[in-house]
């Protein structure tokens, strides 16, 4: 029973990772790519870690997987903020389908 739940959670995680990587390939500019990839891959890896927690049960290894989840969330989101800000200041152009850019006058 536990094994079945763990396998289902890990499969869902791998499926989300696949979506994230397709987004990394298909979307047109860096900002959209970063969005799709960060969201999908972070939640996919969290789902895999929850599967690991279910598999090992409450104990040393389970708590280790549980501690990794908030670390993963904070580091992934903060790294995404830093990257998107760095890319804007570096001068990366927005895609031509972009309809609005409020940030340009703010950094001037």
């Amino acid at each position: 029973m536990n094994d079945m739940a763990a396998v289902i959670l890990i499969s869902v995680g791998v499926l989300f990772n696949i979506f994230g990587c397709i987004g990394l390939l298909r979307l047109p500019d860096i900002y959209n790519r970063l969005q799709a990839a960060t969201k999908c891959v972070t939640l996919g890896c969290c789902s895999i870690l929850i599967g690991v927690l279910v598999h090992f049960g409450i104990g040393g290894a389970g708590f280790r997987a549980l501690v990794a989840i908030p670390i993963l969330f904070f580091t992934a989101t903060v790294a995404a903020h830093a990257l998107v800000r760095g890319a804007y200041h570096f001068g990366t152009k927005l895609d031509k389908r972009t309809v609005k850019d409020d940030y340009r006058e703010a950094v001037k």
Binding site: F19, D29, K39, L43, R97, D101, Y103
Partner: peptide, 26 residues
């Protein structure tokens, strides 16, 4: 919200026409 966000991204990525209308708002 996280789980909903993933299905949202999956829909936009797998759709053949990619329904995006990006921009930076304040």
């Amino acid at each position: 919200a996280c789980i909903m966000a993933n299905f949202d991204v999956a829909y936009r990525v797998l759709h053949p026409a990619m329904p995006i209308r990006p921009g930076i708002v304040k």
